[in-house]
Simulated scan of single mutants.
Amino acid sequence: MSLASHLAELKRKHGDIEREIDEASNHPSYDALEIAQLKRRKLALKDEIEKLRSPTRH
């Protein structure tokens, strides 16, 4: 998988999780812990995207 396609996939997943968080926030049946876990996953994806974008990859 090329770097560009990997980044595109990560961005897609990030957007999917963002939409899931928005939907969960609008439903009282969702647990706050579940929303927190989604936010952690979203942040981990963002960190990975930023790491891949940085000129000095680690």
Rank of each mutant, 00 (worst) to 15 (best):
M1R: 15
S2M: 02
S2P: 15
L3C: 03
L3H: 13
A4H: 10
A4C: 05
S5A: 08
H6R: 15
H6T: 10
A8F: 11
A8H: 14
E9H: 04
E9S: 05
L10G: 08
L10Q: 13
K11D: 10
R12P: 04
H14V: 04
G15D: 14
R19F: 15
R19E: 15
I21W: 15
I21H: 15
D22V: 05
D22G: 08
E23Q: 08
E23G: 06
E23M: 06
E23T: 01
E23K: 08
A24N: 02
S25L: 10
N26H: 14
N26I: 01
N26V: 01
N26C: 08
H27N: 11
H27Q: 07
S29D: 12
S29R: 14
S29F: 07
Y30C: 05
A32P: 12
A32N: 13
A32R: 15
Q37H: 10
L38H: 06
L38E: 05
K39E: 09
K39D: 07
R40Q: 04
R40Y: 02
R41G: 06
K42L: 07
L43W: 12
A44C: 02
L45I: 11
K46M: 09
K46R: 11
E48I: 03
E50Q: 13
E50P: 00
E50K: 14
K51C: 03
L52M: 09
R53Q: 13
P55W: 03
T56M: 07
T56W: 00
R57A: 07
H58G: 09
H58D: 04
